[in-house]
Design a protein around this nucleic acid. Structure first.
Lengths: 218, 218
DNA sequence: AGTCTCTGGTTTGTATACAATGTGCAAAAA
DNA sequence: TTTTTGCACATTGTATACAAACCAGAGACT
């Protein structure tokens, strides 16, 4: 438990990672005792971690019956992605109004670093983090922390499903191209065009997920 | 603790009510031991309740230092209300597309019940609940549960400040009139006009709060 | 056979006890 | 006087122990 303030936070972070990585399919029961043994702590910090994940929408508590990983229906996934379109185009518009060249350079740094990682090995393990880091860098100049927090929340909720879609590396390359496109449009302060591309970007991700969900692996 | 599944949930609900009622001004430290004695429970359910409220944005934990009620800056309040405009106009548009007459009647019921309560005594204690119940009834036909949950979350966060504004009963009457207006426009399926009114409705509430915050009671 | 009730075991929810961290004050050093 | 160090206390974080709720299966009843 390297350098964490509390055990509960460490468990929460690691458990989130495991859930998002798909270790626990939707609907599996998370037994407090088992997790406590896993992390070599008592059930108290485990419970607190599970409560934190509940508020993030990754887990659901049924009183006296325990915690279960949540499962999103196709309808809810579509709903989440529509919300993302709404909020992210809103914040992008605000961001473009306030962008400085330094902001753009920061975003580009992240992008290039990931391009390298892609070419030199194809580690897509932490794609989600890179992906959100890029978007966040692009959105940060809007200076709307509450909005950004909400967007982050929505991203976490859909992350588990995004990974399913990313099994196909060609999807990643397309997404990466669109990221470059977004950055270019932001540089030119083409707010409307950028928002259109972002909308397309998010919709594509959504459709990718839905198509995987509806035709399970054969 | 009448008919609650768990003590933690009871404490969370009651504590939320107390915080929203303004019993603990922003920045107050919430001592676990004191609350435990208040509710005659141990500190464990109190901690879990505080964690739940943290995820709602009403409380902040500082590791090993405890939980404090949050305080929103004017900038953040404005941000929250802009988010509400964005999300609530979005859901209202969807709702109006699917509205049935029964939906409208349900919303009207809530409105009339509150009108009565207003005339017969002026209990504004639970105005927030009535207010949200009406909006919820209006939004429900959109059938977007995730979106509605997010809206509910934003409302909770701003509730504490709304009460400040509502000290002036004339504000309530104005809001109530606008509710009737919203309902009428919804009946006529005038989506755009309804959204405009809603936007105005939310903005007015925001400005009311900000003006109270910036000129403290004299 | 099918339904119902009871009971033992399992798991969660909470109380109590202990450990670890942070805070404030007092005494020592500059 | 001002700053620093150390210690006692208060409060949080967590382990352990216990109580209460759920569940599964066996036997009783129709």
């Amino acid at each position: 438990m390297p350098a964490y303030k509390t055990r509960a936070q460490y468990v929460a972070d690691d458990l989130r990672r495991r859930i998002l990585a798909g270790e626990f399919p939707g609907g599996t029961q998370l037994r407090q005792d088992a997790l406590a043994q896993d992390y070599d702590v008592s059930r108290i910090p485990v419970r607190e971690a599970l409560l934190a994940l509940e508020s993030e929408g990754l887990v659901e508590f049924h009183p006296h019956r325990g915690a279960f990983t949540t499962e999103l229906s196709v309808a809810k996934i579509r709903e989440l992605f529509e919300l993302r379109v709404l909020l992210e185009t809103y914040i992008l518009r605000q961001a473009i109004e306030h962008l400085t060249d330094q902001d753009l350079d920061k975003a580009e740094d992240i992008l290039l670093k990931y391009d390298e990682a892609l070419n030199s090995g194809g580690q897509i393990d932490n794609w989600s983090e890179y992906n959100f880091a890029f978007h966040e860098a692009l959105y940060a100049p809007a200076d709307l922390p509450e909005t950004l927090a909400l967007i982050s929340q929505l991203n976490t909720k859909s992350d588990r499903y995004i990974r399913m879609q990313l099994l196909y590396t060609q999807e990643i390359e397309k997404a990466e191209q669109e990221h470059h496109g977004l950055l270019a449009l932001a540089r030119e302060r083409q707010a409307e065009a950028a928002c259109e591309l972002l909308k397309k970007h998010i919709h594509e991700a959504c459709e990718g997920i839905v198509s995987v969900l509806e035709k399970p692996v054969t």
